[in-house]
Simulated assay, not measured.
Amino acid sequence: MLRAENLTKRYRQGEKEVVALEGFTYTFPRGATAIVGPSGSGKTTLLNLLAGLDLPTEGGVYLGEIPLHRLSEDERSEARLKHMGFVFQQWNLIPTLTAWENVAFPLLLAGWPPAKRRARALALLEGVGLSQRAHHLPNRLSGGEQQRVALARALALDPPILFADEPTGNLDAEAKEEMAALLFQAGKERTLILVTHDLELAARAERILHLKGGRLLREEVPRKVP
């Protein structure tokens, strides 16, 4: 379980103090939580703090009973590897590695032996419909295919927490729908935290958190159409 307590981030911009996030408290349950709000509302700041990619000015982030904000940089990196997966808007695939090698990369970092890495990566690619593209480099894949590889990589170590930052922002309508279906399917089995400008995508989550001016305005439970 991931929870934030009075999470606040301030920084200096010349002589001015900017409050990027203030007093955010929330416990993220299993399933999908979408975070929405206008540009500058604190969405990306919040994601970075929740993942331990940045440290708060005040408050804290707890991974179970582990105070993530009190760990060293190396300890936070280890926690991310073991407990978190990430899908970004820009895919961030390693251009010199094939699709399956990209998916297997977290397994390499975790010390898995070669045969098990390959088998796990190929199984994950099959799960996102890309088994036939396993040996292709990223530049031979479409944008939608690259994003599905990125999702498979994020799931390599079966993390209990999955972060997705604008995961459909660069995709056409068909690829967006494919990615959304896979993402929310993965979110049923873990805690999915989705940052998006796309309100239709957000409405597919179990709950929506609305941010504005660095503050949590409200939590919404979308009405599901039968």
Rank of each mutant, 00 (worst) to 15 (best):
residue 147 Q to A: 12
residue 133 R to G: 02
residue 184 F to C: 08
residue 92 N to F: 08
residue 138 P to K: 04
residue 163 F to A: 11
residue 148 R to A: 10
residue 87 V to N: 11
residue 121 A to M: 08
residue 94 I to A: 09
residue 137 L to N: 03
residue 155 L to H: 03
residue 174 E to I: 13
residue 182 L to W: 00
residue 144 G to T: 07
residue 114 P to C: 06
residue 84 M to S: 10
residue 150 A to F: 04
residue 167 P to W: 00
residue 106 P to Q: 12
residue 172 D to Q: 13
residue 167 P to R: 05
residue 118 R to T: 14
residue 146 Q to Y: 10
residue 131 S to K: 14
residue 173 A to S: 12
residue 85 G to C: 04
residue 82 K to F: 11
residue 164 A to N: 01
residue 135 H to S: 14
residue 178 E to Y: 11
residue 118 R to W: 09
residue 143 G to A: 07
residue 179 M to A: 03
residue 96 T to H: 13
residue 100 W to R: 14
residue 168 T to E: 02
residue 158 D to K: 15
residue 78 E to Q: 11
residue 151 L to C: 05
residue 113 P to N: 05
residue 83 H to K: 15
residue 147 Q to I: 03
residue 107 L to D: 09
residue 82 K to W: 13
residue 77 S to A: 14
residue 96 T to V: 15
residue 75 E to A: 15
residue 145 E to L: 01
residue 89 Q to V: 04
residue 115 A to C: 01
residue 166 E to I: 07
residue 128 V to E: 01
residue 103 V to G: 01
residue 87 V to I: 14
residue 130 L to Y: 03
residue 169 G to Q: 00
residue 146 Q to G: 10
residue 86 F to Q: 09
residue 167 P to G: 10
residue 114 P to H: 07
residue 129 G to E: 05
residue 174 E to Q: 14
residue 87 V to M: 09
residue 131 S to M: 10
residue 139 N to M: 12
residue 115 A to L: 11
residue 137 L to Y: 11
residue 137 L to M: 11
residue 82 K to I: 10
residue 122 L to R: 14
residue 132 Q to K: 14
residue 118 R to V: 10
residue 99 A to F: 02
residue 93 L to P: 02
residue 119 A to G: 10
residue 152 A to I: 06
residue 173 A to Q: 09
residue 79 A to P: 05
residue 134 A to Q: 07
residue 75 E to L: 08
residue 178 E to N: 15
residue 170 N to V: 08
residue 80 R to D: 07
residue 134 A to F: 04
residue 95 P to C: 13
residue 74 D to T: 08
residue 119 A to Y: 08
residue 90 Q to H: 15
residue 179 M to K: 00
residue 164 A to V: 01
residue 78 E to T: 11
residue 100 W to F: 14
residue 170 N to C: 09
